[in-house]
Design a binder for these strands. Structure first.
Lengths: 109, 109
DNA sequence: ATTATAGGATACCAATTGGTGTTGTGTCAG
DNA sequence: CTGACACAACACCAATTGGTATCCTATAAT
């Protein structure tokens, strides 16, 4: 029933520094209304709300209405896709390290 | 002339699926000229070249001229920043968090 | 009941993004 | 020498992004 109308790419969702900061705030604070989030940024409420919508579309944020406020909380599990993607390349930067070490060893001799 | 044109955010560099595929191709192939990369995409040479420029600005790709062709290769180490960032949140997608979200959802009803 | 607050919904705007085609230049093959 | 090739450098364009200001409704406080 709760179908996501527009599924957003997680990679593009975390591309914006404001959205990464939102993720950080929500990770620390468990649950926050829009107002409390807005005051931490040098931009208006509408802009923050748009960023939260994008995070929601990527499944990174959930919200619930409590009285007159909408409280947002983090759902970090979509970030697993990022970790899976990036960990594939970890062997490539350790490979670079091995090459560098090789070059340094050759230089020493 | 040690001018680094504009240091690009690694997060935004990997936000585009075309650029992620370029990273993948370069990871597998060690070194590739622009032409060999272009034929793998449904777009023109100029578009692929622009994506490679963005990857270069993020430090993810290096290039060298060999004769009349420019060969590109991967430099994966900037991806470490991504891994550092995402690994911080791994604790948030644990089973306990999922249960908390579930409890909050039930409270809503 | 009145007023202040939280935030959804729009309309609007400038800058950026992701693509195109064209032109020019250096390089390799006949 | 003459083409064909690889690519950079532009100019250009539509769609998207990241922000604004404004209006409206629902809720809370007095």
């Amino acid at each position: 029933m709760s179908e996501n109308k527009l599924s957003r790419d997680v990679f593009s969702a975390i591309a914006d520094p404001t959205r990464r900061q939102l993720i950080h705030l929500l990770a620390e604070a468990e649950e926050l209304p829009l107002h409390d989030l807005t005051v931490q940024f040098p931009m208006g409420r509408t802009a923050v709300s748009k960023h939260l919508t994008i995070l929601k579309e990527a499944g990174l944020v959930l919200d619930r209405k409590v009285g007159r406020e909408t409280r947002f909380r983090l759902n970090a599990s979509p970030l697993r896709e990022i970790q899976d993607w990036v960990s594939f390349y970890s062997k490539y930067w350790s490979m670079n390290m091995m090459r560098l070490n090789q070059l340094l060893e050759e230089e020493e001799e």
